[in-house]
Each structure stands twice: as structure tokens, then as C-alpha cells.
Design a protein around this nucleic acid. Sequence first.
RNA 1: GCGCAUGUGGCGUAAUUGGUAGCCGCGCCAGACUUAGGAUCUGGUGCCGAGAGGCGUGGGGGUUCGAGUCCCUCCAUGCGCACCA
Length: 925
Amino acid sequence: MDYNFRVIEEKWQRYWREQQTYRTHETPGQKKYYVLDMFPYPSGAGLHVGHPLGYIASDIVSRYKKLKGFNVLHPMGYDAFGLPAEQYAIQTGQHPKLTTRQNISRYREQLDKIGFSYDWSREIRTCEPDYYKWTQWIFIQLFHSWFNCLTKKAEPIEKLISAFEQHGLNCNAPQFLTGDIEKSVQSFSAAEWKGMTEKEKSDVLLNFRLAYLSDAWVNWCPALGTVLANDEVKDGFSERGGYPVERKLMKQWSLRITAYAERLLHDLDDIDWPESVKEAQRNWIGRSEGTSIRFKLVNHDGFVEVFTTRPDTVFGVSFLTLAPEHELVNLITAPEYRSKVEEYVKGASAKSERERQTEVKKVSGQFTGAYVLHPFTGEHIPVWVAEYVLAGYGTGAVMAVPGHDQRDYLFAKHFNLPIREVVSGGNTEVEAYTAKEGLLVHSGFLNGLGVKQAIHEAILEIEKLGIGKGQVNYRLRDAAFGRQRYWGEPIPVFYKDGIPHTIEESELPLLLPEIDTFQPTESGEPPLARARDWKYRGKYEYETTTMPGWAGSSWYFLRYMDANNEKEFVSKEAVNYWQQVDFYLGGAEHATGHLLYLRFWTKFLFDLGFIPVKEPARKLINQGMIQGVSAFVYRINGTHKFVSAGLRDQYETTPLHVDVSIAPNHILDIEKFRDWREDFGDAEFILEDGIYRCGAEVEKMSKSKYNVVNPDDIIAEYGADTLRLYEMFLGPLEQSKPWSTQGINGVHNFLRRWWRMFNISGDRCVLSEEEPTAAELKVLHKTIRKVEEDVERFSFNTTVSAFMICVNELSDLKCHKRAILEPLVILIAPYAPHFAEELWHLLGHQNSVTSASFPEWKEEYLVENDFEYPVSINGKVRFKINLSLQLSKEEVEQNVLRSGEIVKFIQGTPKKVIVVPGRIVNVVV
RNA sequence: GCGCAUGUGGCGUAAUUGGUAGCCGCGCCAGACUUAGGAUCUGGUGCCGAGAGGCGUGGGGGUUCGAGUCCCUCCAUGCGCACCA
């Protein structure tokens, strides 16, 4: 009987569904294993062959661990809120709820065809109220929490309120956050706190809440009509859609992820994640140690506070620079410079983020006419405004030390400002000396010290004078959390007398209201402002922004543990059993976005005692991207003529993408091409060798590039098991590679060879019940060991070739013995589940192969008696000699030197003979 | 500019600890069988060379009895960050 994958795959998919084979329950006492895929956004384009790569790998791990006796949690769901559905809704008027549901059912059909072992009873959809109810609930917990810098964790806001009631607020006390937001908070006494109005108290508390409302500089994307978080902006353009982004000051909900900067950085050491992801997170967090220094203003009250990592160079300061947005600029500018400064600031703010970034190399700035006093020399130091200083980092002001900082140096050269050498070792005539080596010179009390020592001494002195203190700064910014969009979780907040309040937990979920059109209002308010009669308790205005796409994905791994719980986001029993993800698989593009928010929310929920773990996933692997191979035709400009790729140099042409399905092996099917698009109907062609060759290029797989390959097509032709094996066979999981069906036949033929080995006749395998030989047992046990070792280190491509080698060897041995073949069915079950299930039943089993146990390999079948030693002379292998492995090093050496072949290569006694037992012999002459 | 990956036959790749480089598959070459197939089976296939032999893991250098693997340096490609004081 032939291997009829169409019948087999359909049959077992139905069986698994009916038997609920993949349903998982918490079983205390049984060891658990949690395998998680990064869930997909269900786009209208459906799955392409790149998506399942990771899903197949994680499915193999799940099935393998199950066979190994683990209770495996392997769920799937959908990251279902997001911009594309909403953009589509704006264009077509279709409710995003409907298109999202349609897309999800398409995804589900495609996923089912591949034969995954997901427990679909735990499916989640972030856009459904039974899920986003808990996303809103977590937001409420964030709102009612603050970060205590003494205990280094989140605590209920009530604790802060009672501290205010007893002691007031001392901004210099260490437990209070001091960052860019909090600097606007003034100290107050307990009595003053008690005297404050509700509004005043609320404003103070917003400076501490982990979810807070504030005026903040945000990334505003006019084309999308919304604010974006930093990780959603790439090079000044929106990640989704590629629209320009500008800076805008607006009232905005944010999450205080900066409070967790230190822990997010520190705990990276404890998790088994790719070094590249950890490094990206370290860079994103951007910790730097330094000190603040306050420079007293001349002719004004107050001071300019700077942050520097090089307080040792304080004697080399020749000017101060403020960011154009700095609040002091307006205040301190001298009358005679006012118009010039205003012009400069205006010019700076008119620029887009993009323009600012591309003009990085251009030096620009403007003197304000103001001066500060040098804290140690008393010298007057001019204050400038310049774009190279970022408002959002540190204090938005720098002390410029041109001798030892590249940017300051360029600035000083450009404006002819003094350059002072204070660390010896370089030549400040030529360039800035930025190395942290050398001795301090021209630096008062720091003279003669090394850089490290000088930094230490300088901080001590600065702190002694009370003009600053040692500080750690982070590049990480708080995350903008409100989106001026419709298709997201409503933020569960209403406003009473201008004060934000969260709704009662018992009133959750706050449902997304129905509106007539998904566009912003005429006055520019977010779409939710269109909702009629949408008021809290009929009285109070709701918040009209919604949560960003990453809200729902920041905690979803917990919901799978207890997906249908209506009382809690996850039960204690479930989370105590499943703990955290053991194996998390997803794309590398989430290194700093999703994965940072996920870790942040996990730590927060841990702090409040809701969950027992402070990291979401112990092990993370990034699967590589499967790229598309696009095909191109070359149209001769201004004509309907297309020239074959090899001849295109002779003409002026424009390359056009052509659908890969009408250009098999990059040879254009001319008839199909003419039918493909109406305007190509009368196309003419210049051929080479009688055919039209297309150009090829590796690009991202996408609809617009006509290079998408649908797994459904591969399955129709070869079956899901072939697709699964082939995707694994393509190479290491982490590596990106272009999709090519070259070689898929090899994998398919391998399955057919395996199938034939089982001698299937009617509805059973006709196998020999004979005792296996030593050679056969060796093949079996070698394969078991290889497959086990390779899955454990997530090396799936090598497992597939191990299966192939196994079949080749058993074919050579003409083995058709049950004792050998039956365990092999269990071995391959994680990779080719339908195939294995069919064979398992043909072998006479009544139960599913998924309930079998993974076979154990035994050393006794693998021991070798002899070894064919390669003998190398001076490192070059010259001949081989078969010797017993029982021989000692000396005996091996004697055997080699006595052998007939050695005389061809050496005369007399060798200098040295190295014997590595069981490996190699090297003779040095 | 900085950081992180990755460079091995015509192609995808393998070599888990420094120990026979090229397993497995594709492709290609030769052959067998035939109910002529996108089937199956056998043999061959890193490069140069008729052969003996030589050369070979991006280039150069080093450590070592021995290097794809370790160290230094340069080059190429991909990704991330980029005025972060």
C-alpha cells in the first residue's frame, strides 16, 4: 500500500480533534514543561511558509517532552488588536471585530492542516472582552502602584499616601524616584499634604504611579493619527507603515518602565536567552554611571544642572550647552541675544525627528548671553543652546569639555571656543582625547590622579559641596501607553473634576463602544470620542485613548495557564503549577519591544505577589526568518516589451515584481503572465535561448512583492509531514534563509522509503518477529541517542538527517523486524505526527502514539571493539589501521610503528608519537 | 561610528570537548529495471592533476604533535543601536 498522505493526515487530524488528544490539565506531582510560541497577529494575508517554521520546532519539542513523560502546556492564540485591521476598517467601513474574526478562522484552518498539538481549549484572543478584561485589570493595578526605591519593588500606592500623611515628601530621601518626570515635584510637609485639594493630591500622586498621565514629549505620527512608543519608531518613521514621526508635547498615559531599568538589566544574567537579545536590551536600557553637577547662574537665581559620566574633567569645562527644549533657555537668555536664540529654538523644533537625525554631523548652536560660575575656579562660563543636546536624556544640559569629548570638540572648533587639556595622553590640538587613561593636569585638587581615581575624588568633592551627587542614568524612557485609535483595549479610566479615576474592578471589562466611523473626530479627538452616551455611570467622561498593541501580549503567557477563568486573570493553583515558560520561541524583531514589556509586567505582577516568578521565560530562541525569493521582469521603458534577464543590460528597463507562481524556476510562463494582469495582455518579449528568464532577489516574504508561498499549497502537493520535516531540514532554526523547494522531494522520498520498510499489506504491517542482530540494534540505539541529544539542544535539521541515515542503514541491512521498527515510529512521531500515528495503528496499537514513551538507548548496543585509526604523519592523514580499542596507548604506538605502511613515510625512529585512544594517531618526524 | 551574528563543494548544510573536513539532502554524471515515472535500485561526484601527488573551511598571521573549531588582524554580508554627555 502506498503512502497516501492526503487520507492519512485528514484522518488523524479528525481523530485528534474528536479524542481531544492535546487537551492539557494541571496534574500536581507530574513534572511540567511549558512551550510557547510568540502568538501571531492575524493579518488578512494568512500564513506563509515562514510562519510555521517556529511553530513546527516548538511542536516537536512539545511532542518530544510529552513522550518523555512531561505534562506539556502548548497553547496558541492571537494578538488580535492592532493597526492593520483598523486601517482596513477606515477604508471599507467593516468593523475590525469582523475582519479580525475572519482572519483568525483562516489562520486556524491553516494551522490545523499542519497538525500541531495545540490545546485549543486554551486559545486566547486579546481583542475579546473575556481577555482584555484582565489587561484592563492589570492596568488598574499599575495605576494603584508606585515603585519604592528602597525596597526596589512596586507597592500599593496607599503605602505612599500614608508616608505622605506622616512625613510629607522630601525629594532628597532615597526611597522616592528621581528621574526626568519627578523633578517637577516639590518637597512638602505632612501638613501641607493634608492641606492639598483632591486635584493637587492627584497631580502629586501621578508623579509616582506606574501608570500615569502627564505632559510628555511623544512620538506623534500624523499619518496614523496616533502616538507611538520608542520601539515602534525606526529612524524617524513608524515601524508599521513607514510614516514620518514628529515630536509633540501632549497629555499622555505612560507606563513607568524606567523604574524597573536596573532590575530589567540585572536579571538578564539569570535567563538563557540569545546573547544578541540580551545585548539589545542592555543597549536599549543604556545604563551609565556618572554624577549631577549644579552650575550657579550669574545674574540669576538658581542653577543649571548637568549630568556627566566624566566628572574628572570638570576643570576642562569651557561652556555649558542646553537642549533647545530646556525650560531655562527662555529664562536666562540675555535681551541682546533673545531674537537669535528664539530663532534657533524655533528652527530646531520645526524639524522632524528624521531631519534632526540626518543632520547629526552638522554643528549648530547659539550663545544665550548667559553665564554660570565654575564651582571650583569661579570662572564665568558661557551657556549655549544646541541641538546636539537631547532634552530627554539626563538633565537636558551638558557641561562641555571639548578636550575630551568628540561632540564638544567639534562644537568648540566650529564656534572658536577654548579647548583645555585636563587629561594627559592625547593631543588636543588635533582631536579630542576621549580615552579613560592618563593623568589629570590643570585640574586643581585632581592633578596627578589617574582618570578612575579622579572620577571618584571629583564625586566626593561635588557631594561635599552639595552641588550634585553620584547618579545612574538610563537611556530607557517611559513607555507611551495611550493610542489615539479605536481597535485597542479601552483604558479603564474616567475623569471627575479633571481627576483621573479607575473604574471598579467589579465593573470590568470596560467594553469597546460601538461607533459609526473609525476616524478621529472633526476636532481631532480619538475615535472613541464619537461614542454616544458613553459615560461612566452616565455622568463622567471616559478616557478616549486605547492601549497599544503590546498591552495584551505583555502578560498572555499567564492567561494560557488558566484561559477560561472568569474570577481571576490566572488562578494561584495554575500559576504555581506552570510557573513560567520553559521554552519560548519567536522572531528576533521583538528583542526590545515585546520582550522588554513582557519582562516588565512579569516583574510587576511578581512584586504584588500575584505570580511566583520574576521572569516570563527561562529559555528563548529566535527562529530565523524565511525570506521570499522575488521574481522580476524587465520592461523596456516606454514600451510593452519585456526583456529576458540576461539581455537586460542592452536596454533601459524598469524591473517589475512578478508573481512567483507564474515563474517556476525563474522562467516566466508567458501565457500566464499575459493573463495575470490586464495591462500585460499585449506584452511582447525578447527571449534568450527561447525562454524568458526572470531576475531573482531575496526579499522579505510579502504580498506586495508577489513572492509569498502558502503552506497550503505545499501540503496539497507533499503533505503536512513532508512540510514539517522539510522546514526543519532546511538548516539551523536560528538561521534566516530564503524559501526554496529545491530538495523537498528528497524529504518526501525519505518518508516513502521509511513507509516501504514497514511492508504494509491491507491494514497491517507484515513484519518479522525475529530477534534483531547486533548491527540492527546498533542502528536503532545510535539513532535514539542522536535524536534525543539533538532535540535537547534544539538542533532539528541534524535530527532529520539522522532519520535518513537510519533508513539508509536499515535498508542496507534489509531489516523488517518489529523490534527495530516499532520504536522508530515513536522517535519520528514529534516530527511527522500523522505519518507516525498511521504506522502506529498499522502496527496494531489501539491508543495514540502520543501516549507512548520515548525509547531509551542502551550503551551496551553501541560499544565498539575495534577502531580504524587514522594515522597521520606530521598532521597529515596517510593511512588507516584497524586496532582493538582495548589496546593501551603504548600498544597502539607499537602496532603503528610495526605496521607495513609506516615505512613508506618515515625513516628511523620518529621524534614523537601522539596516541589519542579511539580517535587518532599522529607521528611526528 | 559602536555592538551582535554569519562566512565550509554547483546549492541547502554536517563535523556536540582542538583529533579522519564535506555526513544527510538537492543537483549533476554513469548504469540497471521497467506496465516509461516527478517511480525504484546500483555506482560516482570538493578543487587541480593522466597519475603519483598537491591544494582546500572569506584573506593574512599566530598558538599546537594536530585548528573549520582557540588567539590577533583584515575583508564581506546581515541585523540592531546611533549626537545618550
